[in-house]
Amino acid sequence: MSLSDPGPPDAASAAARLRFETVYDATYAAVLRFAQRRVHPSHAEDVAADVFVVAWRRIADVPREPDEARAWLFGVARRLLLASQRADQRRHALTLRIADDQVTGRLGSGVDADLVLHHVDLARAWRLLSPVHQESLALVVWDDLTSPQAAEVLGISAVAFRLRLSRARRALRRHLEPGTSPTTTTTTTTTDRAQQRSTR
């Protein structure tokens, strides 16, 4: 045995390893998807790696219940992403990427013109949402969190989150109404900036 070999784990560390393996296997894909929604795909695995390094260090703090563990890890991921933004440009919400490729790819090559147009409308309406509203919708619809879990990720009360979510849905509907002009907004600009900042 070399001096650097930590040797066989004791009972406590064996339990921690088992616990980490369980959490990792159950949540890695979800954490990676969480990151893919918020940073460039080339950076998503780096974010997931950082999340699980934190989880290993703090394995005793990770909730036992799988869904709660997932939400806890999302909270870590979100705070990592916020921390990666330059302090002077730090925001209170992360902008969300959308599946632009579907417009020119999977949907664009299909025969259902309505579906393509709907997607374009949705994509445009999404970009008009504030980052706060984008994040509220994404946590529930894409990340599949309950309102209390999403509230925990954001560090706000469940009531506050429900209010945000309700307003986000209303704002998106408003942007989908005919006649809403496709203006370039700050949201679009910050999306690009945030992605650039997040790509190391």
Binding site: R17, F20, E21, Y24, D25, Y28, A29, L32, R33, F34, Q36, R37, E45, A48, A49, F52, V53, W56, R97, I98, A99, D100, D101, Q102, H118, H119, L122, A123, W126, L137, V141, W142, L172
Partner: peptide, 29 residues
């Protein structure tokens, strides 16, 4: 349901992603 269609995340991990995920798990442990 409409918003769900905008989700940019891949529904499944590629083989390469799975390999890297296993490698990361071992390195962390």
């Amino acid at each position: 349901a409409a918003v769900r269609r905008l989700d940019p995340a891949s529904p499944t991990l590629t083989d390469a992603q799975q390999r890297r995920a296993l490698d990361l798990r071992e390195r962390i442990l």
